[in-house]
Simulated assay, not measured.
Amino acid sequence: MGYTHVFILLFIGYIVFTIDKKQRNFPVPMVLLLIGIGLSFIPYFSPIAITKDMIFNVFLPALLFISAYQIKIGGLKKNSGVIIVLSTLGLILTVLILGASIYFVGLVSLSFIGALLIAAILTPTDPVSVVSILKKSSNNPKIADVVEGESMLNDGTSVVLFTVISNLYLSDKQFDLFPALGEFLLVSFGGVLIGTAFGWGVSRIYHFTHHRQYQVMLSIVLAYGSFYTAEHLGISGVLASVSAGIILSWKLETTHKEKDYRSYLDSFWEVIQPSILSILFLLIGIEFMKHIDFQNIGFIFIIFGLSLIVRFIVLAGIMKMFGKWRKEFLWDDISLITWSGIKGTMSVALLLGLASESSGQADTILSLTYGAIILSLIIQSPLVYPISCWFSKQNK
């Protein structure tokens, strides 16, 4: 991808985000995606390719850090129980049930591990603009907090789970529960530990750094340094970046200079976020035509539908199991949280990671999964606001 391509994609993103500022609840990810699909038919953009390394090493650390840094610690604390359960037990149950469902439907020849691999790629959620829409349209503030917190934490756990399943798929090894569980816990907790240490250390240095531009530099070091260090050690860079952002945000809230510290950080990262999202979703659209196989379009719709059904079943089962959550989250709330679980950046990153390692071995999985991701972005994104408003009116 050349520099001219980058400038063009950024300018397109600028136009789309400017429209979003003027029209309420404009589905930015979907519009960028559709524009990207359109660009794929223009020969000038055909050399452009999006890779796993591009997403993981360039885009992802910044996006993860921004989400974690901007999250409201109060909302995270209030809903920490349900968020943690959904991001761990809920995620594992979703992968198992969705994988089994895809396998038993069996419209395309897939092994059980292959079906689990599709489920693992589709499990992480990426609400992007959904959270801001939910905060404006829903009369239950917990919904936005749960959707945001779950998305942030399940990115890390989904990467670990995907790594375990993809290794089994590509190596044809037999599944062994306890070694897999041990690896899952080691990689997960190791990432959290690294991120926490980085976040605490940088937050202490902030008090000795009086120049705002240097504080911004420190935040860049924190976002990418925690990620790369964890990955180098063989543990979760995703959870490291998320943990680092949360710790920094929490430490800033405990100081009387929070507004001063955040002013420069916000002005920097709030420019970086839409810039990255513009390039990323346009690239996802451009890449789409390279992976999709329209012969399996019917099964792609079935997989997309199953992903919503299974997500609803798991959410309902968890939230209705405990008395406190049963009272806090009505059936309408569970339905809205289900619909807000849009697939996106992380799913594409996992998909491209599989493509780079499989050497054509997983072409069917790539086609089915990429199609389901695109359907999620196109179908779910524009309907979040009207569904949220409708539920809010029903519960008045």
Rank of each mutant, 00 (worst) to 15 (best):
G2C: 07
T4N: 10
H5V: 08
I8W: 09
Y14L: 11
V16Y: 11
R24K: 13
L33E: 04
F41S: 08
P43D: 13
S46P: 09
P47H: 10
P47F: 03
I48R: 05
D53G: 01
F56G: 00
F56Q: 13
N57F: 07
V58D: 03
F59L: 13
L60N: 01
L60M: 05
L64Q: 08
F65H: 03
Y69K: 03
Q70N: 13
K72F: 05
I73G: 06
G75L: 01
G75E: 02
N79Y: 02
N79M: 06
N79D: 13
S80W: 09
G81P: 00
I84R: 06
L86R: 00
L89R: 01
L91V: 05
I92H: 12
I92Q: 12
L96G: 04
L96K: 08
I102C: 09
L107H: 06
A115D: 03
A120K: 14
P124I: 01
D126W: 10
V130A: 12
V131E: 09
S132L: 07
I133R: 06
S138N: 13
P141T: 02
K142V: 00
K142P: 00
V146L: 09
V147L: 12
M152D: 00
L153A: 02
G156N: 08
T163I: 04
Y169S: 11
S171T: 15
S171Q: 15
K173W: 03
Q174I: 14
F178M: 15
P179C: 05
P179M: 06
A180E: 04
A180P: 03
E183G: 14
L186C: 00
F189P: 14
V192M: 13
V192A: 13
L193D: 07
L193C: 14
G195P: 03
A197K: 01
G199T: 08
V202G: 08
S203D: 09
S203Y: 11
H211A: 11
Q213H: 11
Y214Q: 03
Q215Y: 03
S219K: 09
S219I: 01
I220A: 12
L222E: 07
L222F: 03
A223S: 02
A223I: 00
Y224D: 07
Y228H: 09
G234Q: 11
I235K: 06
V238M: 00
L239P: 02
G245D: 01
I246D: 01
S249V: 04
W250S: 11
T255M: 10
H256T: 14
K259T: 10
K259N: 11
D260Y: 10
Y261F: 15
R262M: 05
S263P: 00
D266Y: 00
S267A: 12
F268H: 12
F268R: 06
F281L: 10
L282F: 12
L283C: 08
L283F: 02
G285V: 07
I286T: 10
F288R: 05
Q295F: 01
N296C: 05
F299V: 09
F299D: 10
F301L: 15
F301M: 12
L306N: 09
I309C: 07
V310G: 10
I313P: 04
L315E: 04
G317Q: 11
I318C: 13
M319E: 15
W331N: 09
D332S: 15
L336R: 03
V348S: 09
V348F: 15
L351A: 06
Q361H: 13
T364R: 03
L366E: 11
S367D: 13
Y370V: 10
L377A: 04
P382Y: 10
Y385G: 01
I387H: 07
C389P: 00
Q394H: 05
N395P: 02
K396A: 07
